[in-house]
Simulated assay, not measured.
Amino acid sequence: MKVLLLAGSGEGRVLADALYKMGVNAVASLAGATRQAKPLALPTRIGGFGGEDGFCEYLEREKITHVLDATHPFASRISHRTALVSARKSLKYMQYLRPAWTAQAGDQWHHIRDETDVLGLLNKTPSTVFLATGRQTLERFANLEGHRIICRQIDPPTSPFPFEGGEYCIGRPPFSVGREVELFEALGVDLLVVKNAGGTASRSKLDAAALLGLPVAMIERPPQPDAPKVDTIEAALDWVRAC
């Protein structure tokens, strides 16, 4: 048995540590979106596979027998491809998908389908919009030009903001609730935009918004592959143990 761990989420790091301690023959893969990412406990490859053909070639060359998909809930294109290829090659596949966030007392959430729907939540007065959505989908907010747009990302930018009125806020998680409150107040944030990634580590921004009475534009998750899923670390490890 040889396991490929697609470790694109925070839980991917936890799974890598656990698989290493269990002595499982496994290799991890990171897309390389974050520069100078902290090393994982497992041998790690960084970067894309080169499309479906490259992915198939990698699986054959490395003699992968099991795939544990712990990518980000919004990396659905990768998950769909991985599940499809795994089924075609008769590889065992399991998706770890952490539970989505649900609104709590005090939350002012507006559920939207995608980034372009944020505009409908703003009035004609220029607003300060804080994007906690990463840089990969930044260009989808171009219809917000005319408002002050602040995009938080981990690494310093290597190119200008893609449209007028935007600026970057550099920060590396985790962020405490108190720190988020201070940041949102200092920036004068009127609307927080978040992808429904789920998880406890990054919920602090939502708790901070609730304390400040800030509205939140909650982007719903894309459809996930029709494939086996678990929603806890222990269940994912149990799947490996049973293989």
Rank of each mutant, 00 (worst) to 15 (best):
A100V: 02
L119S: 06
K205H: 12
T128W: 07
S127P: 03
L97T: 02
I78K: 11
Y93K: 13
L40W: 11
L30K: 03
A37Q: 12
Y168L: 01
L237D: 08
G50H: 10
A33Y: 12
H111I: 10
G32P: 05
A236Y: 06
L138V: 13
A41I: 13
I64A: 00
L19S: 09
Y20S: 15
I112T: 04
D53Q: 15
K2N: 00
L68C: 04
S9Q: 05
A235R: 12
I112F: 12
P215L: 04
H110G: 00
R179H: 14
R203E: 02
L121G: 08
D226H: 06
W101P: 01
F175Q: 13
L42T: 12
G51T: 01
A142T: 05
I154M: 11
T232W: 09
E164A: 06
A31M: 09
D69F: 13
F130C: 14
G10S: 06
V194A: 02
P157E: 03
E52I: 15
D238P: 01
G120P: 07
R241K: 15
G48C: 10
D17P: 13
R221W: 04
A208D: 08
L15N: 08
Y58Q: 12
E115N: 01
V240W: 10
G106K: 11
D53I: 14
D238L: 13
D107V: 02
Y20A: 15
S9E: 10
D231N: 12
T65Y: 10
S79C: 11
L212I: 12
G47M: 11
N143S: 04
V181R: 15
M22H: 07
I112E: 14
R172E: 13
T44A: 14
C151A: 15
N196R: 09
D117F: 05
M218C: 06
V193E: 04
V24H: 01
F141P: 09
V194G: 00
Q136D: 09
I149W: 07
A186R: 00
A210T: 09
C169A: 10
I219A: 02
A28R: 15
K205R: 14
V14R: 08
L122N: 11
V189K: 11
T65C: 13
L68Q: 07
S159R: 02
